[in-house]
Design a binder for these strands. Structure first.
Lengths: 154, 154
DNA sequence: TTAATCAGTTGTATAATAAGACTTATCTTA
DNA sequence: TAAGATAAGTCTTATTATACAACTGATTAA
C-alpha cells in the first residue's frame, strides 16, 4: 500500500497492537493459508499470487512476531516448513469472524468457498458473536466499551 | 505500504473478500474509532494521527463499501457526520476478536486501555470463540475447514 | 548426471502513504 | 457583525512498500 512509517505499536489499544502484527496487506491471508494447511514457500506463493520478495518479508515478519515458526520438514525434505505457533493458531476466532462477515456482506456470486465446522461432530459452528456468560448472544447495540478496570494480579 | 495493484476482490474466499474492504492499513482503526463514538473528520484525525489525505481516502473507500455513511449532523452543525451502517456495525465481532487476541498476545506494559462489556448488566462478555450449537466452546484443534456445501436457496 | 524445482535475492518501476502548505466554508466570540 | 479560529478537505513533494522480472545457489526428480 504505501509508506507505513507510522506504527501502531505504541498505541495502548489492543486492536491497534494486534493490527501492528497482522494488519499488513497480505499477513492475514498468509495466516489463513497456514490454517488451511500451507507449510511451504511455494504453497503460499501459488495460492496467493504474491510477489516472492513480499512473501519473504511477510513470512519473516510473522516469524519475528512469533506467529509463525520455521521447523524442519516432517517428510524429511531439506526445505524447512512454516508452521503456526499457538499464538498464531489463536487467531482462529479472528479468521472465523472475518469469514462470517464476508459470507454475509461481501458475497461472491458463486457463494462461499470454505466453511468452518466441528471436526468432532461434522456439524456447523454457531456464529462467532459477543455473548453473555450464560452463552446468550447480545444485540450489537448492547455491547459497550469502557476504560479497562485494573485486573487482579493473581 | 506500497503498490497494491493486486486485489483480493476476485478471490472466492470470504476472508479475502472482507480484507479487500477493511484490510487497508488504517481501515479497521477508523472503524474502531467509529464504534467508540467518533463521528467527525477531526475525531478520526486526532485520535489516529493519520495524514489528512489518507484519512480522506480511507473514509471515502469505507463509504463506497457501504460500511460508513455520511449523514447530516445531529447537533445541527453544517458539517456532516460519518456513521457506521449496519454492515459496519456487524464488524463488531471482528473487533472484539482482534482486541481479545491483543489482550493476550500483544500486551501493553500498562495493560489494556478498553474493554467490551454488556450494557444491560455491566458484566464482562465471554470470549468470542468458536462454539457448538449448544454454546460449548471448541478447542482450536477441533475446528476444521471444508469446501462449503451448497446452501438451500430457500 | 542432467534438468527441473525450490527458496530465495537483487534490481527497477509503480503506487500508496506521510508531511506540510494551502484553500474554502463554517463556527465562535468580542 | 466582523475577525479570528476551526473544520474539512486539496495539492505537491518525498518516502516507502509492493509488483514484476531476472538471476542465483541449493535441493530434488528423472
Amino acid at each position: 500500500m504505501g509508506m507505513k512509517s507510522k506504527s501502531f505499536s505504541d498505541m495502548q489499544c489492543s486492536i491497534a497492537r494486534t493490527l501492528e502484527l497482522v494488519g499488513s496487506w497480505w499477513s492475514l491471508l498468509i495466516i489463513r493459508d497456514a490454517m488451511m494447511g500451507a507449510r511451504r514457500f511455494k504453497h503460499f506463493e501459488s495460492s496467493l499470487g504474491i510477489a516472492k520478495n513480499t512473501l519473504t518479508n511477510r513470512l519473516n515478519e510473522l516469524i519475528e512476531s512469533g506467529i509463525l515458526q520455521k521447523v524442519s520438514a516432517e517428510d524429511g525434505s531439506a526445505y524447512d516448513e512454516y508452521r503456526l505457533t499457538l499464538k498464531g493458531r489463536e487467531l482462529g476466532p479472528v479468521m472465523i469472524a472475518l469469514s462470517q462477515w464476508g459470507d454475509k456482506w461481501a458475497v461472491h456470486p458463486e457463494g462461499p468457498r470454505f466453511e468452518f465446522f466441528d471436526q468432532k461432530t461434522g456439524h456447523d459452528l454457531s456464529a462467532v458473536w459477543p455473548r453473555r456468560e450464560n452463552g446468550e448472544a447480545l444485540q450489537l447495540g448492547e455491547v459497550g466499551v469502557r476504560p479497562a478496570r485494573a485486573k487482579p494480579i493473581v
